[in-house]
């Protein structure tokens, strides 16, 4: 059930625009939308970054998983900037500046997201304390 909804969704969102049914643009994809960087190390960097950037129109996918033109354009942007020597995190920061945290799949710790990290830490602590107490009780 679940998964086919996902796929249905992917189809619906793969349309060129989330706005009321837009026609397809006729332009070929941006140069680096479907082309890799010549330097494998740079491409690997770009790919790792792209996997964590969210497609803005097909909202449930990363830009590496989408055929939407805007995802292709964003891949182009990322590859061009990586090629120019910009650090991946700087590119992410710039996109976050434009779009907010939404565009990045890697949440950062801030006033709004700290529980996302605090709760797992708390879980580990509680589990650790309980286990420790059990173990020491046994040896006592």
């Amino acid at each position: 059930m679940i998964r086919f909804l996902l796929i249905a969704l992917a189809v619906v969102l793969a349309l060129p625009s989330a706005l009321p049914l837009a026609a397809q643009d006729k332009l070929p994809p941006a140069p680096y939308a479907y082309r890799q960087l010549a330097d494998p190390a740079q491409e690997a960097k770009a790919h790792a970054l792209m996997q964590t950037l969210r497609c803005l129109q097909c909202q449930g996918q990363s830009i590496t998983d989408s055929d939407a033109p805007i995802a292709g354009d964003m891949r182009h942007q990322v590859r061009v900037r990586i090629e120019a020597g910009v650090e991946p995190e700087a590119i992410r920061a710039q996109l976050i500046e434009s779009y907010g945290d939404y565009v990045s799949y890697a949440p950062v710790v801030n006033a709004l997201t700290w529980p996302l990290f605090a709760i797992p830490v708390l879980l580990v602590l509680v589990i650790g304390v309980v286990l420790r107490r059990r173990l020491t009780t046994r040896s006592a």
């Binding site: 989330a18 140069p31 434009s98």
Partner: peptide, 16 residues
């Protein structure tokens, strides 16, 4: 703008 570059710069995610 054939590669949507200005959109990424000003935080626009669709047309229009």
């Amino acid at each position: 703008d054939n590669v949507s570059a200005i959109q990424f710069a000003i935080g626009s995610s669709g047309v229009p």
